[in-house]
Nucleic acid binder design. Structure first.
Lengths: 207, 207
DNA sequence: GTAGTTGTTGGCACAGCGCCAATAGTGCAC
DNA sequence: GTGCACTATTGGCGCTGTGCCAACAACTAC
Protein backbone atom coordinates (compact mmCIF):
# COMPACT_ATOMS: atom_id res chain seq x y z
CA UNK A 1 0.00 0.00 0.00
CA UNK A 2 1.57 3.20 -1.18
CA UNK A 3 0.68 6.02 1.16
CA UNK A 4 -0.94 9.07 -0.43
CA UNK A 5 1.45 12.06 -0.34
CA UNK A 6 0.16 14.85 1.87
CA UNK A 7 1.16 17.49 -0.65
CA UNK A 8 2.54 17.58 -4.13
CA UNK A 9 6.05 18.68 -4.64
CA UNK A 10 6.38 20.95 -7.66
CA UNK A 11 9.26 22.46 -9.53
CA UNK A 12 10.21 25.91 -8.29
CA UNK A 13 9.01 27.71 -11.38
CA UNK A 14 5.61 26.12 -11.39
CA UNK A 15 4.98 26.69 -7.71
CA UNK A 16 6.17 30.24 -7.99
CA UNK A 17 3.77 30.76 -10.85
CA UNK A 18 0.81 29.43 -8.87
CA UNK A 19 1.50 31.67 -5.94
CA UNK A 20 1.96 34.61 -8.23
CA UNK A 21 -1.37 33.94 -9.89
CA UNK A 22 -3.14 33.87 -6.54
CA UNK A 23 -1.48 37.09 -5.56
CA UNK A 24 -2.55 38.70 -8.81
CA UNK A 25 -6.14 37.64 -8.30
CA UNK A 26 -6.40 38.82 -4.72
CA UNK A 27 -4.53 42.08 -5.15
CA UNK A 28 -6.80 42.94 -8.03
CA UNK A 29 -9.79 42.16 -5.85
CA UNK A 30 -9.02 44.04 -2.67
CA UNK A 31 -6.67 46.79 -1.53
CA UNK A 32 -3.21 45.80 -0.38
CA UNK A 33 -3.90 46.05 3.30
CA UNK A 34 -6.93 43.78 3.03
CA UNK A 35 -4.96 40.96 1.48
CA UNK A 36 -3.02 38.95 4.03
CA UNK A 37 -0.22 36.60 3.15
CA UNK A 38 -2.38 33.94 4.74
CA UNK A 39 -5.09 34.68 2.17
CA UNK A 40 -2.70 34.32 -0.71
CA UNK A 41 -1.19 31.17 0.72
CA UNK A 42 -4.62 29.65 1.28
CA UNK A 43 -5.70 30.57 -2.22
CA UNK A 44 -2.61 28.93 -3.63
CA UNK A 45 -3.09 25.95 -1.36
CA UNK A 46 0.27 26.35 0.24
CA UNK A 47 1.90 27.19 3.54
CA UNK A 48 2.33 30.84 4.33
CA UNK A 49 6.07 30.57 4.76
CA UNK A 50 6.48 29.58 1.15
CA UNK A 51 5.62 33.07 -0.02
CA UNK A 52 8.63 34.41 1.80
CA UNK A 53 10.77 31.72 0.32
CA UNK A 54 9.90 32.47 -3.30
CA UNK A 55 9.31 36.18 -3.12
CA UNK A 56 10.85 38.02 -0.21
CA UNK A 57 8.30 39.94 1.77
CA UNK A 58 4.64 40.51 1.08
CA UNK A 59 5.58 43.87 -0.30
CA UNK A 60 8.11 42.39 -2.70
CA UNK A 61 5.44 40.08 -4.04
CA UNK A 62 3.10 43.00 -4.44
CA UNK A 63 5.65 45.05 -6.32
CA UNK A 64 6.25 42.17 -8.67
CA UNK A 65 2.54 41.94 -9.38
CA UNK A 66 2.39 45.65 -10.05
CA UNK A 67 5.42 45.52 -12.29
CA UNK A 68 3.77 42.84 -14.34
CA UNK A 69 0.43 44.63 -14.53
CA UNK A 70 1.98 47.96 -15.40
CA UNK A 71 4.14 46.67 -18.18
CA UNK A 72 3.04 47.89 -21.54
CA UNK A 73 1.66 45.14 -23.71
CA UNK A 74 4.02 44.30 -26.51
CA UNK A 75 1.42 44.91 -29.18
CA UNK A 76 3.40 45.83 -32.17
CA UNK A 77 2.03 48.90 -33.81
CA UNK A 78 1.32 48.97 -37.49
CA UNK A 79 4.25 51.18 -37.98
CA UNK A 80 3.42 53.25 -41.02
CA UNK A 81 6.23 55.78 -40.91
CA UNK A 82 5.27 57.09 -44.27
CA UNK A 83 2.02 58.81 -43.41
CA UNK A 84 1.35 62.37 -42.52
CA UNK A 85 1.77 63.57 -38.97
CA UNK A 86 -1.93 63.29 -38.36
CA UNK A 87 -1.99 59.74 -39.59
CA UNK A 88 0.90 58.81 -37.38
CA UNK A 89 -0.79 60.40 -34.40
CA UNK A 90 -3.98 58.57 -35.19
CA UNK A 91 -2.03 55.34 -35.24
CA UNK A 92 -0.50 56.09 -31.85
CA UNK A 93 -3.86 56.93 -30.35
CA UNK A 94 -5.41 53.82 -31.77
CA UNK A 95 -2.61 51.72 -30.38
CA UNK A 96 -3.03 53.28 -26.97
CA UNK A 97 -6.77 52.77 -26.83
CA UNK A 98 -6.43 49.22 -28.04
CA UNK A 99 -3.89 48.39 -25.41
CA UNK A 100 -6.20 49.88 -22.81
CA UNK A 101 -9.23 47.87 -23.81
CA UNK A 102 -7.03 44.82 -23.97
CA UNK A 103 -6.26 45.04 -20.28
CA UNK A 104 -9.06 44.03 -17.98
CA UNK A 105 -10.43 45.86 -15.01
CA UNK A 106 -7.27 45.35 -13.05
CA UNK A 107 -5.31 47.70 -15.23
CA UNK A 108 -2.99 50.30 -13.97
CA UNK A 109 -4.67 53.64 -13.96
CA UNK A 110 -2.48 56.43 -12.72
CA UNK A 111 1.12 56.61 -11.77
CA UNK A 112 1.25 58.91 -8.87
CA UNK A 113 -0.73 57.86 -5.87
CA UNK A 114 -0.63 60.73 -3.47
CA UNK A 115 2.28 62.97 -2.81
CA UNK A 116 1.87 62.27 0.86
CA UNK A 117 3.67 59.19 2.03
CA UNK A 118 4.28 58.30 -1.52
CA UNK A 119 6.15 55.12 -1.99
CA UNK A 120 9.38 55.82 -3.90
CA UNK A 121 9.88 52.29 -5.13
CA UNK A 122 6.31 51.82 -6.27
CA UNK A 123 6.48 55.19 -7.90
CA UNK A 124 9.66 54.24 -9.70
CA UNK A 125 8.01 51.16 -11.14
CA UNK A 126 4.97 53.03 -12.36
CA UNK A 127 7.01 55.87 -13.81
CA UNK A 128 9.13 53.36 -15.62
CA UNK A 129 6.05 51.82 -17.20
CA UNK A 130 4.79 55.26 -18.07
CA UNK A 131 8.08 56.11 -19.70
CA UNK A 132 7.91 53.00 -21.80
CA UNK A 133 4.50 54.04 -23.04
CA UNK A 134 5.84 57.48 -23.84
CA UNK A 135 8.63 55.89 -25.84
CA UNK A 136 6.12 53.88 -27.75
CA UNK A 137 4.13 56.95 -28.63
CA UNK A 138 7.16 59.00 -29.63
CA UNK A 139 8.40 56.18 -31.74
CA UNK A 140 5.08 55.93 -33.48
CA UNK A 141 4.60 59.57 -34.25
CA UNK A 142 8.24 59.65 -35.31
CA UNK A 143 9.42 63.14 -34.51
CA UNK A 144 12.81 62.58 -36.01
CA UNK A 145 13.01 66.16 -37.18
CA UNK A 146 13.08 67.35 -33.61
CA UNK A 147 16.71 66.82 -32.85
CA UNK A 148 17.09 69.29 -30.07
CA UNK A 149 14.83 69.86 -27.09
CA UNK A 150 13.91 66.22 -26.87
CA UNK A 151 13.64 66.56 -23.10
CA UNK A 152 10.89 69.10 -23.37
CA UNK A 153 9.06 66.93 -25.83
CA UNK A 154 9.31 63.99 -23.48
CA UNK A 155 8.03 66.07 -20.60
CA UNK A 156 5.08 67.25 -22.64
CA UNK A 157 4.24 63.76 -23.77
CA UNK A 158 4.58 62.48 -20.22
CA UNK A 159 1.97 64.96 -19.10
CA UNK A 160 -0.08 64.06 -22.11
CA UNK A 161 0.06 60.46 -21.00
CA UNK A 162 -1.84 61.35 -17.86
CA UNK A 163 -4.49 63.01 -19.89
CA UNK A 164 -4.72 59.93 -22.04
CA UNK A 165 -4.98 57.58 -19.10
CA UNK A 166 -7.67 59.61 -17.44
CA UNK A 167 -9.61 59.99 -20.64
CA UNK A 168 -9.36 56.26 -21.11
CA UNK A 169 -10.85 55.78 -17.71
CA UNK A 170 -13.70 58.12 -18.53
CA UNK A 171 -14.40 55.85 -21.41
CA UNK A 172 -13.82 52.36 -20.01
CA UNK A 173 -14.85 52.69 -16.41
CA UNK A 174 -16.99 55.71 -15.96
CA UNK A 175 -18.60 55.33 -19.39
CA UNK A 176 -18.76 59.08 -19.53
CA UNK A 177 -17.22 59.34 -22.98
CA UNK A 178 -17.37 57.20 -26.07
CA UNK A 179 -14.28 55.79 -27.68
CA UNK A 180 -14.70 58.20 -30.56
CA UNK A 181 -14.81 61.16 -28.23
CA UNK A 182 -11.73 60.01 -26.39
CA UNK A 183 -9.95 59.40 -29.63
CA UNK A 184 -10.82 62.87 -30.76
CA UNK A 185 -9.58 64.39 -27.55
CA UNK A 186 -6.31 62.50 -27.67
CA UNK A 187 -5.64 63.24 -31.29
CA UNK A 188 -6.27 66.94 -31.06
CA UNK A 189 -4.37 67.32 -27.84
CA UNK A 190 -1.31 65.57 -29.14
CA UNK A 191 -1.54 67.50 -32.35
CA UNK A 192 -1.65 70.74 -30.44
CA UNK A 193 1.33 69.75 -28.37
CA UNK A 194 3.46 68.74 -31.30
CA UNK A 195 2.50 71.39 -33.78
CA UNK A 196 1.78 74.29 -31.56
CA UNK A 197 3.20 74.04 -28.07
CA UNK A 198 6.52 72.44 -28.81
CA UNK A 199 7.71 74.90 -31.46
CA UNK A 200 6.67 77.83 -29.33
CA UNK A 201 8.36 76.34 -26.28
CA UNK A 202 11.52 75.83 -28.27
CA UNK A 203 11.37 79.39 -29.48
CA UNK A 204 11.31 80.68 -25.94
CA UNK A 205 14.11 78.27 -25.11
CA UNK A 206 14.43 76.46 -21.84
CA UNK A 207 14.51 78.26 -18.55
CA UNK B 1 6.59 73.18 47.06
CA UNK B 2 4.15 72.59 44.25
CA UNK B 3 4.99 69.39 42.39
CA UNK B 4 5.70 69.78 38.70
CA UNK B 5 2.93 68.20 36.60
CA UNK B 6 4.14 65.24 34.57
CA UNK B 7 2.22 66.35 31.51
CA UNK B 8 0.19 69.31 30.45
CA UNK B 9 -3.50 68.91 30.05
CA UNK B 10 -4.71 70.71 26.93
CA UNK B 11 -8.09 71.44 25.44
CA UNK B 12 -9.22 68.81 23.01
CA UNK B 13 -8.93 71.07 19.96
CA UNK B 14 -5.41 72.14 20.71
CA UNK B 15 -4.17 68.65 21.43
CA UNK B 16 -5.88 67.34 18.33
CA UNK B 17 -4.16 70.02 16.34
CA UNK B 18 -0.74 69.13 17.67
CA UNK B 19 -1.17 65.47 16.86
CA UNK B 20 -2.44 66.35 13.44
CA UNK B 21 0.57 68.52 12.78
CA UNK B 22 2.94 65.72 13.72
CA UNK B 23 1.05 63.35 11.48
CA UNK B 24 1.29 65.80 8.62
CA UNK B 25 4.99 66.18 9.07
CA UNK B 26 5.76 62.50 9.25
CA UNK B 27 3.43 61.37 6.51
CA UNK B 28 4.98 63.93 4.22
CA UNK B 29 8.40 62.63 5.14
CA UNK B 30 8.01 58.89 4.77
CA UNK B 31 5.57 56.48 3.15
CA UNK B 32 2.55 55.40 5.15
CA UNK B 33 3.88 52.01 6.14
CA UNK B 34 7.07 53.53 7.50
CA UNK B 35 5.25 55.83 9.89
CA UNK B 36 4.13 54.05 13.02
CA UNK B 37 1.55 55.44 15.39
CA UNK B 38 4.31 55.31 17.96
CA UNK B 39 6.36 57.66 15.81
CA UNK B 40 3.56 60.15 15.55
CA UNK B 41 2.79 59.93 19.23
CA UNK B 42 6.45 60.42 20.12
CA UNK B 43 6.71 63.39 17.79
CA UNK B 44 3.66 64.96 19.38
CA UNK B 45 4.98 64.14 22.84
CA UNK B 46 1.97 62.12 23.72
CA UNK B 47 0.86 58.57 24.48
CA UNK B 48 0.08 56.34 21.57
CA UNK B 49 -3.44 55.62 22.73
CA UNK B 50 -4.37 59.25 22.37
CA UNK B 51 -4.24 59.04 18.60
CA UNK B 52 -7.01 56.49 18.65
CA UNK B 53 -9.00 58.66 20.99
CA UNK B 54 -8.92 61.75 18.79
CA UNK B 55 -8.84 60.17 15.38
CA UNK B 56 -10.02 56.62 15.09
CA UNK B 57 -7.47 54.34 13.54
CA UNK B 58 -4.10 55.19 12.05
CA UNK B 59 -5.73 54.99 8.66
CA UNK B 60 -8.45 57.46 9.64
CA UNK B 61 -5.80 59.92 10.70
CA UNK B 62 -3.97 59.42 7.44
CA UNK B 63 -7.10 60.00 5.40
CA UNK B 64 -7.74 63.21 7.28
CA UNK B 65 -4.24 64.42 6.49
CA UNK B 66 -4.73 63.57 2.85
CA UNK B 67 -8.09 65.29 2.75
CA UNK B 68 -6.51 68.41 4.11
CA UNK B 69 -3.56 68.31 1.74
CA UNK B 70 -5.70 67.59 -1.28
CA UNK B 71 -8.16 70.36 -0.67
CA UNK B 72 -7.93 73.16 -3.15
CA UNK B 73 -6.68 76.37 -1.66
CA UNK B 74 -9.39 78.95 -1.40
CA UNK B 75 -7.45 81.51 -3.39
CA UNK B 76 -10.05 83.63 -4.95
CA UNK B 77 -9.43 84.11 -8.59
CA UNK B 78 -9.41 87.51 -10.12
CA UNK B 79 -12.66 86.74 -11.74
CA UNK B 80 -12.68 88.82 -14.88
CA UNK B 81 -15.70 87.40 -16.61
CA UNK B 82 -15.61 90.07 -19.21
CA UNK B 83 -12.50 89.05 -21.11
CA UNK B 84 -12.16 86.92 -24.16
CA UNK B 85 -12.06 83.17 -23.90
CA UNK B 86 -8.29 83.18 -24.14
CA UNK B 87 -8.00 85.68 -21.34
CA UNK B 88 -10.29 83.66 -19.14
CA UNK B 89 -8.30 80.53 -19.86
CA UNK B 90 -5.11 82.38 -19.06
CA UNK B 91 -6.60 83.42 -15.76
CA UNK B 92 -7.55 79.84 -14.94
CA UNK B 93 -4.10 78.55 -15.80
CA UNK B 94 -2.46 81.27 -13.77
CA UNK B 95 -4.65 80.45 -10.81
CA UNK B 96 -3.80 76.80 -11.09
CA UNK B 97 -0.07 77.33 -11.28
CA UNK B 98 -0.18 79.78 -8.41
CA UNK B 99 -2.04 77.35 -6.22
CA UNK B 100 0.51 74.71 -7.08
CA UNK B 101 3.53 76.78 -6.22
CA UNK B 102 1.76 77.82 -3.06
CA UNK B 103 1.68 74.29 -1.79
CA UNK B 104 4.99 72.90 -0.68
CA UNK B 105 6.65 69.67 -1.63
CA UNK B 106 4.04 67.66 0.20
CA UNK B 107 1.39 68.43 -2.32
CA UNK B 108 -0.89 65.92 -3.83
CA UNK B 109 0.36 64.85 -7.17
CA UNK B 110 -1.90 62.38 -8.88
CA UNK B 111 -5.26 61.02 -8.02
CA UNK B 112 -5.16 57.47 -9.10
CA UNK B 113 -2.68 55.28 -7.33
CA UNK B 114 -2.63 51.99 -9.08
CA UNK B 115 -5.58 50.04 -10.30
CA UNK B 116 -4.30 47.09 -8.36
CA UNK B 117 -5.51 47.01 -4.82
CA UNK B 118 -6.63 50.54 -5.18
CA UNK B 119 -8.12 52.00 -2.10
CA UNK B 120 -11.71 53.07 -2.77
CA UNK B 121 -11.97 55.50 0.09
CA UNK B 122 -8.66 57.19 -0.60
CA UNK B 123 -9.59 57.35 -4.23
CA UNK B 124 -12.91 58.97 -3.38
CA UNK B 125 -11.17 61.69 -1.42
CA UNK B 126 -8.73 62.47 -4.18
CA UNK B 127 -11.37 62.43 -6.87
CA UNK B 128 -13.44 64.79 -4.80
CA UNK B 129 -10.57 67.23 -4.58
CA UNK B 130 -9.98 66.87 -8.27
CA UNK B 131 -13.60 67.60 -8.99
CA UNK B 132 -13.42 70.75 -6.92
CA UNK B 133 -10.47 71.92 -8.97
CA UNK B 134 -12.39 71.17 -12.14
CA UNK B 135 -15.28 73.25 -10.85
CA UNK B 136 -12.95 76.10 -10.19
CA UNK B 137 -11.57 75.97 -13.68
CA UNK B 138 -14.96 75.71 -15.34
CA UNK B 139 -16.21 78.57 -13.29
CA UNK B 140 -13.27 80.67 -14.31
CA UNK B 141 -13.41 80.03 -18.01
CA UNK B 142 -17.15 80.52 -17.77
CA UNK B 143 -18.59 78.32 -20.48
CA UNK B 144 -22.11 79.47 -19.86
CA UNK B 145 -22.97 79.18 -23.50
CA UNK B 146 -22.52 75.42 -23.34
CA UNK B 147 -25.85 74.47 -21.89
CA UNK B 148 -26.03 70.92 -23.09
CA UNK B 149 -23.31 68.25 -22.95
CA UNK B 150 -21.94 69.56 -19.72
CA UNK B 151 -21.02 66.02 -18.73
CA UNK B 152 -18.71 65.63 -21.66
CA UNK B 153 -17.10 68.95 -20.88
CA UNK B 154 -16.54 67.88 -17.30
CA UNK B 155 -15.02 64.62 -18.42
CA UNK B 156 -12.69 66.42 -20.77
CA UNK B 157 -11.63 68.89 -18.13
CA UNK B 158 -11.12 66.10 -15.64
CA UNK B 159 -8.69 64.43 -17.99
CA UNK B 160 -7.12 67.80 -18.63
CA UNK B 161 -6.61 68.16 -14.91
CA UNK B 162 -4.29 65.18 -14.94
CA UNK B 163 -2.28 66.73 -17.69
CA UNK B 164 -2.07 69.91 -15.71
CA UNK B 165 -1.00 68.18 -12.54
CA UNK B 166 1.70 66.21 -14.30
CA UNK B 167 2.94 69.22 -16.16
CA UNK B 168 3.09 71.06 -12.89
CA UNK B 169 5.23 68.32 -11.50
CA UNK B 170 7.56 68.54 -14.46
CA UNK B 171 8.00 72.14 -13.55
CA UNK B 172 8.12 72.14 -9.76
CA UNK B 173 9.75 68.86 -8.94
CA UNK B 174 11.55 67.53 -11.95
CA UNK B 175 12.52 71.01 -13.15
CA UNK B 176 12.17 69.72 -16.65
CA UNK B 177 10.00 72.57 -17.83
CA UNK B 178 9.83 76.24 -17.05
CA UNK B 179 6.71 77.87 -15.75
CA UNK B 180 6.27 79.61 -19.07
CA UNK B 181 6.43 76.36 -20.94
CA UNK B 182 3.92 74.73 -18.66
CA UNK B 183 1.66 77.72 -18.94
CA UNK B 184 1.87 77.53 -22.68
CA UNK B 185 1.06 73.84 -22.67
CA UNK B 186 -1.90 74.26 -20.37
CA UNK B 187 -3.33 77.21 -22.23
CA UNK B 188 -3.14 75.65 -25.65
CA UNK B 189 -4.44 72.31 -24.47
CA UNK B 190 -7.45 73.80 -22.78
CA UNK B 191 -8.07 76.03 -25.74
CA UNK B 192 -8.00 73.04 -28.04
CA UNK B 193 -10.41 71.16 -25.83
CA UNK B 194 -12.90 73.96 -25.54
CA UNK B 195 -12.74 75.32 -29.06
CA UNK B 196 -11.99 72.27 -31.04
CA UNK B 197 -12.68 68.99 -29.28
CA UNK B 198 -15.87 69.87 -27.48
CA UNK B 199 -17.82 71.22 -30.47
CA UNK B 200 -16.78 68.26 -32.57
CA UNK B 201 -17.69 65.83 -29.81
CA UNK B 202 -21.07 67.45 -29.47
CA UNK B 203 -21.58 67.22 -33.18
CA UNK B 204 -21.01 63.51 -33.11
CA UNK B 205 -23.32 63.34 -30.12
CA UNK B 206 -22.84 61.09 -27.18
CA UNK B 207 -22.48 57.35 -27.53
C1' DG C 1 15.94 -0.34 -0.69
C1' DT C 2 18.66 3.61 0.65
C1' DA C 3 20.73 7.94 0.81
C1' DG C 4 20.81 12.61 -0.85
C1' DT C 5 18.49 16.67 -2.45
C1' DT C 6 15.41 20.30 -1.84
C1' DG C 7 10.58 21.80 -2.02
C1' DT C 8 7.53 22.51 1.82
C1' DT C 9 5.70 22.88 6.30
C1' DG C 10 4.55 24.53 11.02
C1' DG C 11 5.44 27.26 14.66
C1' DC C 12 8.18 30.71 17.18
C1' DA C 13 9.19 35.56 17.99
C1' DC C 14 8.34 40.11 17.25
C1' DA C 15 6.35 44.53 15.77
C1' DG C 16 2.36 47.45 15.33
C1' DC C 17 -2.26 48.51 16.30
C1' DG C 18 -6.95 49.06 18.71
C1' DC C 19 -8.89 49.18 23.05
C1' DC C 20 -9.99 50.24 27.83
C1' DA C 21 -9.60 50.65 32.79
C1' DA C 22 -6.92 53.37 35.74
C1' DT C 23 -4.65 57.77 36.57
C1' DA C 24 -3.68 62.48 37.07
C1' DG C 25 -4.24 67.39 35.68
C1' DT C 26 -7.60 71.21 36.05
C1' DG C 27 -11.11 74.25 37.35
C1' DC C 28 -15.21 74.98 40.17
C1' DA C 29 -17.97 75.20 44.51
C1' DC C 30 -17.78 76.41 49.15
C1' DG D 1 -7.38 77.19 50.63
C1' DT D 2 -9.45 72.58 50.38
C1' DG D 3 -12.05 69.00 48.41
C1' DC D 4 -14.53 67.35 44.50
C1' DA D 5 -16.16 66.31 40.05
C1' DC D 6 -14.70 66.20 35.30
C1' DT D 7 -12.23 64.57 31.59
C1' DA D 8 -7.76 64.66 29.16
C1' DT D 9 -4.22 61.38 29.20
C1' DT D 10 -1.69 57.36 30.20
C1' DG D 11 0.07 52.60 30.17
C1' DG D 12 -0.40 48.08 29.19
C1' DC D 13 -3.17 43.95 27.60
C1' DG D 14 -4.46 41.17 23.66
C1' DC D 15 -4.73 40.39 18.98
C1' DT D 16 -3.44 40.17 14.16
C1' DG D 17 -0.15 39.74 10.66
C1' DT D 18 4.48 39.16 9.20
C1' DG D 19 9.37 37.32 8.64
C1' DC D 20 12.19 33.67 9.74
C1' DC D 21 14.10 29.10 10.37
C1' DA D 22 14.76 24.40 11.74
C1' DA D 23 12.53 20.14 10.93
C1' DC D 24 10.13 17.30 7.65
C1' DA D 25 8.63 14.84 3.72
C1' DA D 26 8.40 14.08 -1.35
C1' DC D 27 10.96 12.92 -5.09
C1' DT D 28 15.37 11.14 -7.57
C1' DA D 29 19.37 8.51 -8.57
C1' DC D 30 21.87 4.56 -7.79
Amino acid sequence: MTTEPRWRRLGPDQRREEIFASAQRLFALRPYRDVSTADIAADAGVARGLLNHYFGTKRDLYLEVVREAASVPENVIDHAPGGTLEERIDAAVTWFLDSLSGQDAAWISAAGSSGLGRDPELERILLKAEDDAVDRVLETIDMADVTDHRDELRAFVRAYGQLAKTAGREWLIKKQLSREQVHLLLRQSLLTIVEDVLPEAIARDRA
